[in-house]
Amino acid sequence: MNWKLIGGVAAVAVAMVLFAPGPMAALAPLLVVAVCPLSMWFMMRHMHGSSSQTTDAADRTEIARLRSEVAELRQQHSDRTTT
Results as ranks from 00 to 15, higher is better:
N2Q: 07
N2K: 03
W3T: 09
W3H: 13
K4L: 12
L5F: 12
G7S: 09
G8M: 00
G8W: 02
G8N: 10
V9L: 04
A10H: 02
A10N: 05
A11D: 01
V12D: 04
V12A: 11
V12W: 09
A13Y: 08
A13S: 15
A13G: 05
A13N: 00
V14Y: 04
V14G: 00
A15S: 13
M16Y: 08
M16I: 03
M16F: 10
L18N: 05
F19I: 10
P21W: 05
P23H: 05
M24C: 03
A25I: 08
A26G: 03
L27N: 09
A28K: 01
P29S: 01
P29N: 04
P29G: 01
P29L: 02
V33P: 15
V35M: 06
V35C: 11
L38N: 06
L38K: 04
S39T: 03
W41C: 14
W41A: 15
F42K: 15
F42V: 13
M43Y: 12
M43C: 05
M43H: 07
H46E: 08
M47H: 12
M47W: 11
H48C: 08
H48T: 11
H48E: 11
G49L: 11
S50Q: 12
S52V: 06
T55R: 11
D56T: 09
D59T: 08
D59S: 04
D59A: 10
R60K: 14
T61G: 02
T61V: 00
E62Y: 07
I63H: 02
I63T: 05
A64D: 13
A64Y: 06
R65L: 13
R65D: 15
R67T: 13
R67Q: 13
E69F: 04
E69G: 02
E69R: 03
V70M: 00
V70G: 01
A71W: 09
E72I: 02
L73F: 07
Q75T: 13
Q75Y: 11
Q75I: 07
H77R: 12
H77V: 10
S78P: 04
R80F: 08
T81F: 10
T82Y: 09
